[in-house]
């Protein structure tokens, strides 16, 4: 019953836990953007090593994230295969040279060092972001989420929607379970032995009562929030917000240095790609 749909926050005394959620969010977003844009392998390897080091310091245990890591690996592998299948010659096109390993350039399917190198860059992009995302999710108190979003400039109404969602996920899960049991008792087969069509039908039968129950809940919540003056002012403060400390400013400087380095490399490389073949 204690199955967790989401990987959750675990309080541990590391410096990453003590950083403000906003700092971590800014870091995560900045690294993601620059890392997604650039194809400079040296830079990507640098970020990857840094994120693995941070991951180590965050004291996150593998079994806490095993499931999501496996899902990501499977997804990344599938993605790389598809990228290759749809454009085996794309690497040569980008780097402008032809170092073939298998086949010849006349055929659609061939394998070149350029293509392999291109795919390797893609792999790095998928991989470096994972530890960073996990660090952000597992070292940031969910109560601080909304405050962090608000701090980086997102409207507090939208930020609070995240908090409300986190708050009510367990409630909706409970409603779903109750409704599903009641419907099963009336004869909707939803066990794994039932035919797919029947299970799909059963799911729809749960959806209608679940929607009505949730709509009612939303009405009460919005009244309760209005009665406590949510949405009246242009801004609000957050009980759980963490004020910036020295460590936060230092981290932001480090993030900025990485960003500047990434942008500087665009200039050095004359574009997004670092080309070792020339």
């Amino acid at each position: 019953m204690t199955e967790n749909l989401f990987i959750g926050y675990i309080d541990r005394p590391t410096f990453l836990h003590h950083l403000s959620g906003s700092t971590k969010l800014i870091g995560f977003i900045s690294f993601s953007i620059i890392g997604m844009v650039t194809f400079d392998t040296r830079f990507l390897l640098g970020i990857l090593i840094m994120s693995l080091v941070l991951f180590h310091y965050a004291q996150i245990r593998y079994r806490e994230v095993a499931l999501i890591v496996k899902v990501i690996i499977a997804f990344a592998a599938l993605n790389l295969i598809m990228v290759y299948v749809f454009g085996p010659g794309y690497g040569m096109q980008i780097y402008g040279t032809k170092h073939l390993i298998l086949g010849n350039s006349q055929h659609y399917f061939n394998l070149s060092w350029e293509e392999l190198f291109y795919l390797f860059n893609l792999l790095l992009k998928y991989v470096f972001a994972v530890p960073l995302a996990l660090i952000f999710l597992l070292t940031t108190n969910p109560s601080e989420f909304a405050a962090s979003l608000n701090k980086i400039g997102i409207s507090y109404r939208i930020s609070y929607a995240f908090e409300i969602a986190l708050r009510y996920i367990p409630t909706v899960q409970r409603d779903y379970r109750t409704i599903s049991l009641a419907q099963q008792a009336r004869g909707y087969e939803m066990s794994k032995t039932a035919p797919l069509m029947q299970r799909a039908k059963g799911a729809v039968q749960i959806l209608l009562p679940l929607i009505f129950t949730s709509l009612e809940r939303i009405e009460t919540i919005s009244q309760a929030m209005a009665l406590r003056r949510f949405g009246q002012q242009h801004k609000r403060t957050w009980y759980m917000a963490r004020p910036f400390k020295t460590a936060d400013y230092l981290s932001l400087i480090v993030i900025a240095v990485w960003l500047i380095l990434g942008i500087y490399l665009f200039k050095v490389n004359n574009g997004r790609f670092w080309n070792p073949f020339k």
Binding site: E163, I164, R229, R236, Y239
Partner: peptide, 20 residues
């Protein structure tokens, strides 16, 4: 259904947060 915070203390502080 009127418990809007993620923890007790946040819910207690909710209206004060809205008052900045």
């Amino acid at each position: 259904s009127q418990f809007v915070g993620l923890t007790v203390v946040e819910d207690l502080a909710f209206s004060l947060e809205n008052d900045c």
